[in-house]
């Protein structure tokens, strides 16, 4: 464990807690894409298959349980909660996220580190995580206005993967045999997808104006 990875995990944890807090306190999911949340639940479900078979550390197991619990409860809130679900913008959240899942499955079957069920599912979860934010970014483009908590949520989500990139660089130089091209490339693609959002987020923060994404 290094400071970059710990900071990345904490930022990631904080991003889901910010989202859960927002939905739980104001009983609204306005501006949040259910599709992105479903994709994240799928990412965690396929990545943490080994949660009961391979014990790595208490920290690792606890964090996996928190991420699984929070992502599925966010999906539950938006789908089932009688008040929250009314604020879900079904007409705007139209990204066909099934079109993201299939290519990721095919790519995971073609490019992986080891052709086993667990490894292919793990690789699938990496590819899916890289593109899972797309429905959310499309929704933001459509609804144009971003409320603070949603903006913070996306910023933290992008920041966590950027910190992971620093973690991979650190591990590459400090641990021999630590080479995971698949992880590095999908993590880089994921972070690049946030790049334009970061640009507008930073400028709105600098000029202290409401965050507006261009049409």
């Amino acid at each position: 464990m290094n400071i970059f990875r710990l900071a990345g995990d904490m930022t990631h944890l904080f991003s889901v807690l910010v989202l859960l807090l927002k939905i739980h306190t104001i009983k609204s999911c306005a501006g949040i894409s259910l599709k992105t949340q479903e994709l994240y639940a799928l990412v965690f479900a396929t990545r943490y298959l080994d949660i009961f078979t391979d014990y790595i550390s208490l920290y690792n197991t606890c964090m996996k349980l928190i991420f699984l619990g929070s992502s599925f409860s966010i999906v539950w809130y938006i789908r089932r909660h009688k008040i929250v679900r009314r604020s879900y913008d079904k007409e705007q959240d139209t990204f066909r996220h099934h079109f993201l899942i299939l290519p990721c499955i095919i790519l995971a079957l073609l490019i992986n580190e080891k052709f086993t069920v667990k490894e292919v599912m793990w690789t699938f979860s990496l590819y899916l995580e890289a593109v899972a934010i797309l429905p959310q970014l499309v929704l933001l483009q459509r609804t144009r206005n971003i409320d603070n908590l949603t903006g913070q949520y996306i910023f933290l989500l992008g920041a966590y993967r950027s910190l992971y990139i620093l973690n991979w660089i650190y591990r590459y130089f400090t641990e021999q045999h630590y080479v995971h091209w698949i992880t590095w490339i999908s993590g880089l693609v994921q972070t690049l997808l946030y790049a334009d959002f970061f640009y507008y987020y930073f400028h709105s923060w600098k000029n202290n104006e409401k965050l507006q994404l261009p049409a």
């Binding site: 990875r5 080994d50 996996k64 793990w122 992971y164 045999h177 630590y178």
Partner: peptide, 10 residues
């Protein structure tokens, strides 16, 4: 070794 096989990152 088994360690690197197991993905130790979240």
């Amino acid at each position: 070794d088994a360690k690197t096989e197991n993905h130790d990152e979240l």
